[in-house]
C-alpha cells in the first residue's frame, strides 16, 4: 500500500507500509540475535511457527473477506505482529500455543476489526495476553539464559520440547526451566526478603537479570535506529521509559530494600521492547504530540503498578492494551491548535 496523496502541489512521500514494516523487522534483528545467543533455538523456532501461522491466517481471512491477498500480505504487517509475539513468548512454549496466539492476534484482534489500520488494540500484545491468561503454567516457564545455566539446549532438544510438550528424556522441567528475573524478584519479595539478599543469586547481572539486560540493550539499539529513520517518533518511547523510571525511582528512594533500582525495571522483561516496538504501534497508539507523551508516561506508570502490585510478573502487555483503550480519549482532549486559530481545534 502506497500513501499516494493526490492533487499536484503536494509531494508524495516515499514511505510505504512495506518499507516501514521492513525497517521495523530490520531493527528487531539485533534483539532477536541476542535472544538466540542467550536462549538457544527456542525463540527462532517460535518465530518460524508464529510467522507461518500469522501469514496463513491473514491470507485465509483476506480470502474470506474477498480482499486482494497479495497486496496486503506483502505489506509485512502480519510478519511484524508474529515476530513481536514470538519475541515475547517463552522459548520452549508448545507449538500449538504459539500458533493459537498468532492466529488469535491476526484473525480476532486485527482482521475482525477491519484489518490493517483499523485495530483498536495491538494484535501481538492481545495474542500474548490471551496465552498468558489461558496457559499460566507454560507461559511462565522460561529458560535461564545460557550464561547462567552454562549450557544451551541443542536444536534437536528444542524441537523435541516444543513439538512434544515434554522435557527431554531423563530431565524434568524443574531442571531446565527457570523463573524470569521479574518473576524471581516478585516471588522473593513476597517472602519478605530484601533486595540485597535477592541479588546474591547468580541470575542477576549489573542492572537486571544476566543476559536479559543485554537483550534490552540490543532492542534499544534497534529502537534508536527506528527513531533515526523516522519510522517512530521519540515521544512515546521516551515518555514511557521516563514514566517508568520516575515512579520506580520514587519508590526506590523511599524504600530501597523492597523496591529494586529503577534500571532493573528498564532492563528486565519487556520494557525496552515494549517502549520502542509495541507502544509505538501507529494504529493503536495516541496520535497527537501531547497525547503521545501522556500515553507513553501512563504506560510506564501502569507497568510499574502492575509489576509491583498486580497478579502477573510482567506488565508491558497489559499496560499497552489498557492504554490502547484510552488512546481515543487522550487524542480527543489533546487536539493541537489549528494554525491561525485561537484555542483548541475542535473542527
Amino acid at each position: 500500500m502506497q500513501f499516494s496523496i493526490s492533487s499536484s502541489p503536494h509531494q508524495s512521500g516515499q514511505q510505504s507500509v512495506t518499507r516501514v514494516m521492513g525497517l521495523v523487522l530490520l531493527a528487531l534483528v539485533p534483539g532477536t540475535l541476542a535472544m538466540f545467543w542467550y536462549f538457544g533455538w527456542g525463540p527462532i523456532i517460535n518465530l518460524g511457527i508464529a510467522t507461518a501461522t500469522a501469514v496463513a491466517a491473514e491470507a485465509a481471512v483476506l480470502h474470506l473477506r474477498g480482499r486482494a491477498i497479495g497486496v496486503t500480505l506483502i505489506d509485512l504487517s502480519a510478519v511484524v505482529t508474529a515476530w513481536l509475539l514470538a519475541l515475547a513468548l517463552p522459548p520452549l512454549l508448545p507449538w500449538w500455543q504459539t500458533a493459537m496466539g498468532s492466529v488469535f492476534a491476526i484473525v480476532v484482534v486485527k482482521q475482525l476489526f477491519g484489518g490493517i489500520g483499523h485495530n483498536p488494540f495491538n494484535p501481538a500484545m492481545a495474542g500474548y495476553v490471551l496465552l498468558l491468561v489461558s496457559f499460566p503454567v507454560t507461559m511462565t516457564r522460561w529458560l535461564p539464559p545460557d550464561v547462567v545455566s552454562g549450557s544451551a539446549l541443542s536444536l534437536a532438544d528444542s524441537l523435541h520440547i516444543i513439538f512434544s510438550g515434554t522435557p527431554p528424556l531423563g530431565q524434568t522441567w524443574d531442571a531446565i526451566s527457570s523463573a524470569t528475573p521479574l518473576d524471581q524478584m516478585r516471588t522473593e519479595l513476597s517472602q519478605n526478603r530484601m533486595i540485597g539478599e535477592i541479588r546474591q543469586s547468580p541470575l542477576w547481572g549489573d542492572f537486571g537479570g544476566r543476559g536479559w539486560e543485554w537483550i534490552g540493550n540490543w532492542y534499544l539499539l534497534g529502537g534508536l535506529f527506528l527513531i533515526w529513520r523516522r519510522v517512530i517518533g521519540w515521544r512515546i518511547p521516551a515518555s514511557m521509559l521516563a514514566g517508568l523510571v520516575l515512579i520506580a525511582g520514587l519508590f526506590w528512594a523511599i524504600d530501597p530494600d523492597t523496591h529494586p533500582f529503577p534500571a532493573f525495571h528498564l532492563f528486565s522483561g519487556g520494557a525496552i521492547l515494549g517502549a520502542f516496538f509495541i507502544a509505538t504501534d501507529p494504529v493503536s497508539a495516541s496520535t497527537t504530540p501531547r497525547g503521545q507523551l501522556i500515553y507513553g508516561a501512563l504506560i510506564g506508570l501502569l507497568v510499574f503498578v502492575i509489576r509491583t502490585w498486580g497478579g502477573y510478573p510482567d506488565a508491558v502487555a497489559f499496560a499497552v492494551l489498557l492504554m490502547n483503550m484510552a488512546a481515543p480519549t487522550i487524542d480527543h482532549y489533546t487536539q493541537p491548535r489549528i494554525f491561525g486559530q485561537r484555542g483548541r481545534g475542535d473542527a
Binding site: 493459537m100 480476532v108 490471551l130 491468561v133 489461558s134 496457559f135 499460566p136
Partner: peptide
C-alpha cells in the same frame, strides 16, 4: 489443557 480465557469474562464477550 483448558483455555481459561473462554471461562473468564473476556471469553463471554468474544
Amino acid at each position: 489443557p483448558g483455555i481459561l480465557l473462554a471461562i473468564l469474562p473476556p471469553g463471554a464477550f468474544i
